[in-house]
Each structure stands twice: as C-alpha cells, then as structure tokens.
Nucleic acid binder design. Structure first.
Length: 580
RNA sequence: GGGUGCAUAGCUCAAUGGAUAGAGCGUAUCCCUCCGGAGGAUAAAAUCCGGGUUCGAUUCCCGGUGUACCCUCCA
C-alpha cells in the first residue's frame, strides 16, 4: 500500500546529490528500506551506517543532512522525513492510500489479496498419498493441511493448480493385511463389525505384525502373495480390490470431514507397470545397469550417491518404480510446468534419486520437480509407533477436538445463538487443526503434545475465528442505512494506522507464501492482525464512538479487517464463522 | 562411517544482515459501570560452543557439540 519504491528512489537520488555536493564522485551503494521496530518511529526507515565511510561523517550527521534535503524537495512522495539517530525515518501521509485500500478491499471482496505473480503457470500438487493398509494418522494430517493450503495459495497467486493424490495400493505391506485377513478374518466385514473400513483393514495389518512375531514364515508368505498379485492371480486380485475398497471409502470419509479434496486420484497399481517398462527401456539405452543377480539399478556416483536398485531381481517393482511411472503418466495427462510433491523430510533421498532418474531418462520437465519437504510430527515420547499404540489417529483427533469445542460452546452458554452446535463445533475443531499444523515453518519437526496442543486459547485457530465472529456481531448491530461517507482522515490513531498498514501488506504476504510454498506466513499474518485488532476494539469504542462519522470510519475499518480475515482463513483452511 | 535438516525463555514456536530478540502455554499480579472474557494489561524468563566476513550477525561462512531423518531388493 505504502509507495516504498518512490521513497526509495527519492532517498537514493537525494543522498547521491548530497554526496556530489561535497565532492563525491562514485556511485553510492543502494539504499536499504526497512520498517521501524515501533509504530511511533514512523512507517519507513533508512539505515545510513553504510555511507559513513564515503561521506567521512557519522551516520547521525548524514541522517540530519539527508532529512533536511528530503523535506525540502518539492515533489517528494507524500509524507514527512525525520532523523532518528543513524536512521532517517519517514512518516507517510496515509489518507489517500487508505481511501484506495478501503475501496479495493471492499470491492474486490473475496478476491482481494490475490496476486498475479504466478499467472499462467500450471502447477500440479501431489499430497496425502496414503497406503491402503491403515487409516490416516497425525503425519497425514500435517501433509493434508499443507497440500490443501499450498494449492489454494498457488491459485490465489494466479497459477492453474491440479491437486492429485497417489494411492499406494500395492506392495508387500498391502499383502500383509490381506494375508492376515485371509488367515484369521472368518469373512468379517466393516459392515458386519460396524468398524469404519480403513480402521478395519488397519486392524488386520496390526494382526499381521503379531503373527509375524510368532511365525517366522509369515514374511515369506507375504512376499509370495505379492508375486501372485503381480502375476494377476484372480483370487488375490479379488481380495485386494475388496479390501482396498474398504480402506479408500473410509479415507474419503476422513477427507470429507477435514475439508480435503482432490482433482484427480492416481493409483500405484495403474502406474507401476509403466514404471517397469521405462526402466527396462532405460536399461536397453544404457541409462541403467543390471547386477549379476538380475536386479536393475542406476549408478548415481555422478551426483555423489550410491547405486540405487530400481527393479528387484524377481522382477517385481519397488516404491521408486511406480513413482517413475506415475510422474511420466501425469505429465502426459496434464502437461505441467512444475510438480510439487508434498512429502515428509524422511524421503529427501528418495526424491533426489527420483528426480535424477527422470532427468537421466531425458524428460525435460524433470528439472521442474520440487519436493516440498516437511518435518516429522513427534509426540512428547518420541516418534509415533503403531506397535506401541502411540499413533494419533486422524479420525480420533477430529472427534476429540469436536467434542471439546462442543463442551466449550455449552459452557459459554452459546447454544441458543447457534443454529447447529455440531456443525459449529466441527468447524472450530477444523480451524484448530489447520492452524496448528500450518503455523510452523514446514521444514521443522514439530512436537504434538495432545494435552497442551489441543487448546482453544491463545495463539490458536479458534482465537482467530473468534475475532471474525466478534466483528460480525458488531456489524449486525450497526445500522448502516444513514451512515456518513467513509473519511480516512478519521482513522488517525496509532492503532488504526498499524492495522491499516497490516491490511495493506496482505497481498505481499500471499505472494511470499506462494513463492516459498509456505502457509505459515499467512498464519503469522492472521495472528498479527487479530492480536492488533483485538487490542484495538478492547481499547477503542466503535459503535458508541463520539460522532456518526467516526463510527462510520471505524466500522469501515472493521469491515476491512473482516474481509482480510475471511480471505486468509480460506487459504489456510480455517472455516469462517459468523457466530460461535 | 557418509548425506541432509534442525539448535532462540521452563515448554511449543517467531524474528527481510540493523534500533530495546517477539508470541502462546505455564508461573505471578491486575481488568466485566464499555460493542461476546475463546479476551485485554503488567512482570520474571532466551540466541548451543569457538572462529571468520561486516560499521553492525539470532540471521551469512567455517569448525565443533547435540539432536532428528535418510543412506533397505520397506513404502
């Protein structure tokens, strides 16, 4: 909103003139523009340390001379410069800027804040990618929140986005739950037991782990079943389809519940054969080599890595085999400019190799593949372990949070106000989860403490939702019919200037979040805005301000904040609530 | 052993190379004559260690220490 560029240019040329006056010849270093640490110190800051040597003067002195020169200019940008020690700071005149901002925010409404920084780019985003042998857990939740949010942020920056999910529905782990079910299942089904499909299949996976401990032959049998599966044995395929169907329908229920959706599903079972073909093809062309025992590998010594097996000696495919096939068929389906894989940091090596393999196979787009690597989610006692029953299940998490939200609603006596308590509780839970998962730098490992993390107070999603609900509540009480026109000059308090500047910076935040694939910038913005607004309405009368014009101006500010909250909420998956 | 991240307050996290390193939780103390207390205010409390670059380093570089993940014909 503030015209930083004009100020920068003005200061640069004034500084250069000043230097020339005292006989300086050479070109000075580019001026740096900053935001002062406190609002009362102005809106812009120019540190002048770097020029001390050239001017042979202390930065404080340069600041004073520069300030005088800048303020004496006839056609400087609107505002006032003042010396602040070794800095020259500027307080910008905001009235016309605020008028524009006010108009833009309210006219653009839900598209306000969107940028065109990625206009025309076609970006595919892969996320979630569950295995069909167990239900979604906390790790998937971080993945899903990130993938969904990044997709929305890229879109808000003008990109065309294709959200894809890759169902890992084949492999020895799938065979393990199938085998245990075959052996011990007695024909039970999710329907007969009343257990959600993905949980039902997951239970058999756990059962296999127990059996494996008792019977050393279990693992060999699982491998055998995988070979049968790849050979297309009808009975095996039938069971596989049945069990995958159970899992996937269970997961889709979880996705729906969490507001996650995809434009397209890919199935590993459909693409691994293409991967195999491409590897055999690469072998023929001399890109890959064959070991004495028959396994095919790529020699990665050119990028400082060891050899990597691409196809087992028995001819069955492994994890990377299908990823090769999947990437190729995706580019055929929807030619993308870039493909973003949202996958945990533990797979960094895998993606390094994958991208290298595709590059060696000669696909030009292999250079535009990006691994959005995010940190692990740990529990206070360490890594989640299914064997020790410490896995935090996604469905359980949603259920317990909804339950907590429901209790709070009742405790606060809000039932009467709400049309649908369960729906509101659900949205609060969703807001809490999304904000929790997205507020941190994706690269960082995070520790999820169920007792401490599941709070609705402080820096949480519900706190943000509450701000929105409070503003809505105010606006409902305001009669706008004879409201005086918006006068930006009335919003001159420090608090108001701060809030307006923050709103003005929102498009830049959206842009940065897109460039960095990082929703945490949006989260930080939301918290900052909410906290500032929260203090503002605590200290300042709005609906009962002194004059109708003042009321109108402040209400307008509230409307702007509200629009900004709504738009940012959308990007990070926090449901907006008019009442809560 | 090699590779890649990470290291900031008691805990969980912020901080475009700049001014007094910010929040939440927890702890202590205040605030419902005022628009919703899922709130506001105040206080105590931190940059892993050693070098280097720079006018200036939490930030950049090198070394060390700690920690996590990977280096499987698991996914």
């Amino acid at each position: 909103m503030i015209d930083r560029q004009s100020w920068k240019e003005t200061v640069q040329s004034t500084l250069q003139d000043l230097y020339a006056k005292q006989g300086g010849q050479e070109e000075l270093a580019a001026v740096v523009i900053q935001v002062p640490p406190k609002p009362e110190m102005g809106d812009l800051a120019f540190p002048l340390f770097a020029y001390a040597k050239a001017f042979r003067k202390a930065p404080n002195v340069i600041s004073q001379e520069l300030t005088q020169a800048v303020n004496a200019l006839e056609n400087k940008p609107e505002g006032e410069a003042f010396a602040a020690g070794p800095y020259m700071n500027v307080r910008v005149a905001m009235d016309s800027l605020v008028s524009d901002l006010h108009r833009n925010v309210l006219e653009d409404a839900q598209t306000w804040g969107n940028t065109n920084s990625m206009e025309g780019r076609r970006i595919m985003v892969e996320f979630s990618c569950p295995n069909t042998n167990k239900p979604l857990h906390l790790g998937h939740v971080r993945n899903d929140c990130l993938g969904a949010s990044v997709s929305r942020i890229l879109k808000a920056n003008g990109a065309q986005v294709m959200k894809v999910n890759l169902i890992n529905n084949r492999g020895v782990h799938i065979c393990k739950s199938m085998l245990a079910y075959k052996k011990f299942g007695n024909g039970e089904t999710p329907e007969s037991t009343g257990i959600k499909g993905d949980h039902f299949v997951g239970d058999w996976y756990v059962r296999f782990a127990q059996w494996e401990k008792e019977d050393p032959d279990a693992d060999r049998q699982a491998q055998e079943l995988l070979v049968k599966w790849e050979a297309g044995d009808p009975e095996t395929i039938e069971l596989w389809k049945l069990m995958n169907g159970w899992t996937i329908s269970g997961m889709e229920e979880t996705y729906r519940n969490m507001g996650i959706d995809f434009d397209r599903y890919y199935f590993e079972s459909d693409t691994y054969k293409l991967g195999k073909d491409k590897i055999l093809d690469g072998l023929e062309r001399g890109v890959f080599q064959k070991q004495e025992d028959g396994a095919i590998y790529i020699d990665n010594s050119d990028i400082g890595l060891d050899r990597k097996i691409l196809l087992r000696k028995d001819g069955t495919s492994i994890y990377i085999t299908q990823d090769i096939g999947t990437a190729i068929s995706r580019h055929e389906d929807w030619p993308f400019d870039s493909l973003v894989y949202v996958v945990a940091s533990e797979q960094q090596y895998h993606f390094k190799v994958l991208f290298h393999v595709l590059d060696k196979l000669g696909y030009p787009w292999a250079k535009n593949l990006h691994h959005l690597s995010y940190g692990m989610v740990f529990l206070p006692e360490g890594k989640m372990k299914s064997r020790e029953g410490t896995v935090v299940d996604a469905d359980d998490l949603m259920t317990s949070l909804s339950q907590m939200a429901r209790e709070q609603i009742i405790e606060k006596g809000r039932e009467e106000e709400l049309e649908d308590i369960d729906a509101t509780a659900h949205d609060i839970a969703l807001g809490a989860i999304n904000y929790y998962m997205l507020q941190f730098d994706p690269a960082k490992d995070i520790t999820f403490n169920p007792k401490e993390s599941l709070s609705f107070n402080g820096n949480t999603g519900p706190y943000l939702q509450y701000m929105g609900a409070r503003i809505c509540s105010m606006l409902r009480k305001y009669d706008a019919s004879n409201a005086p026109a918006f006068d930006p000059a009335l919003l001159s308090m420090e608090d108001e200037r701060e809030i307006l500047k923050l709103i003005g910076s929102y498009p830049e935040v959206v842009k940065k979040a897109g460039e960095k694939y990082d929703p945490s910038y949006i989260c930080a913005f939301l918290y900052d805005l909410s906290k500032k607004f929260s203090k503002y309405y605590h200290d300042t009368r709005i609906l009962n301000a002194e004059t109708p014009a003042l009321i109108s101006a402040r209400v307008s500010l509230c409307r702007m904040v509200l629009q900004c909250l709504k738009n940012a909420f959308f990007l990070v998956g926090i449901p907006f609530l008019e009442r809560m």
